[in-house]
Design a protein around this nucleic acid. Structure first.
Lengths: 210, 210
DNA sequence: TTATGGTTTAACCAACCGGTTAGTTATACC
DNA sequence: GGTATAACTAACCGGTTGGTTAAACCATAA
């Protein structure tokens, strides 16, 4: 296409590889992923992957950093601006929902990673998770000490929010696939940042408010 | 060892295979599982697996039926006895928590299955899931029409409960593995049917009660 | 134009893995 | 006691897959 400098080309090739890899890993997980398939989707020879990035494990780690690294960090940083604990909790739920929608590969890859017990989870990403939980904990404790929230176990609230969002999103293909599920379940919104986030926000706030 | 009849022997061998398979599948998922490893853990020649059960897919389906088939059905049937919607909702949460604790392989396998979009999920199991959701929907609608529950989207409540429980349980190995997580998170109860279920129950009831 | 070095490729390999087969041992049946 | 059958095994097969290598390609500087 366009004339490119080598640096542009390098960047673009790497991007294509990472995008294809994210796609394949989110579809079939680490063990199920075939390097040949990733190369095919990236429109690149398999050896190019090894040249630019390294072996399968390194590629997976790179994808995780690429997708998760900034996503949660950025999204949860939003709630620094808010005033009341209620408002912060609202933003927390919506940030997570929006992040999940913006990065369609996030929920599946987190599920794969969780199922494997964090087999290939880089330390950096674990740190990001810890930060998100820490932020929510602060918000809930702040609310408690201000007398607007009841006493809760923050990690359980976190589990219900993020687990709920992930379960909702990831169950979509299963719900649409099997006739055992009624039409109402099959036709639910694939996105979570709209009405789903509103409902979760409503339930969680009602749950923790004094 | 003991002299055995053929029937006893058959049953015992098949059991050993299914247990080993459940173990391996829950550790590494379908794609990651090696039939040789399952045979090794079962203390059986690989061909014996093919003789008794069939190929890898058939084995996986058999494991799912074995673990999930009755577990949820039985546990959710408990709430037929209860009177009030509140009591039924309480039993629903506790049934799910208890089932997850009684079958340690359940949460991981459900995660693998969800991550794969139900790649190898037998129709029968999808039906079980649909029944569980249906039961909760009835309870919530009953409570709503009696004026004790607010109007909710039942599947989202379901997502928060079962997604929350699964997230809590499955995050345990990750929390204990990385130093990014504070001691409080590392040392949390591995079981969910105790204080965790109580907390979830409390939050969910407070969320949906009028 | 040509030399240079980063980039990409076709071809290849060794290890792995799901599944089969031919043959052996243990049990049941008459 | 002898035979039919069920249960099990060792060895193997062929396709797949992660990873390597050596050669080709191509933008750029001299």
């Amino acid at each position: 296409m366009d004339p490119q400098t080598l640096k542009e080309k390098r960047g673009e090739t790497k991007r294509r590889i990472l995008d294809a890899a994210a796609n394949v890993f989110s579809d079939v997980g680490f063990a199920g992923a075939r390097v040949d398939e990733i190369a095919r989707q990236a429109g690149v020879n398999k050896a190019t992957i090894y040249y630019h990035i390294g072996d399968k494990k390194a590629l997976y780690a790179e994808v995780l950093r690429d997708i998760m690294g900034s996503a949660f960090d950025r999204s949860v940083r939003n709630l620094q601006g808010a005033q009341s604990p209620e408002e912060k909790l609202r933003i927390y739920v919506n940030s997570i929902a929006r992040t999940m929608d913006q990065h369609p590969h996030l929920a599946p890859i987190m599920l794969w990673e969780q199922a494997s017990g964090g087999e290939n989870l880089p330390e950096v990403i674990a740190q990001v998770f810890a930060n998100v939980i820490g932020t929510l904990t602060t918000v809930l404790e702040e609310g408690e000490s201000q007398g607007v929230f009841i006493k809760t176990i923050p990690f359980i609230v976190h589990s219900m929010v993020i687990g709920g969002v992930m379960f909702y999103k990831a169950s979509d293909p299963i719900r649409s696939k099997y006739n055992a599920f009624p039409e109402t379940l099959k036709k639910m919104d694939k996105r979570v940042s709209g009405s789903v986030a509103v409902e979760i926000e409503k339930l969680i706030l009602k749950a923790v408010k004094k």
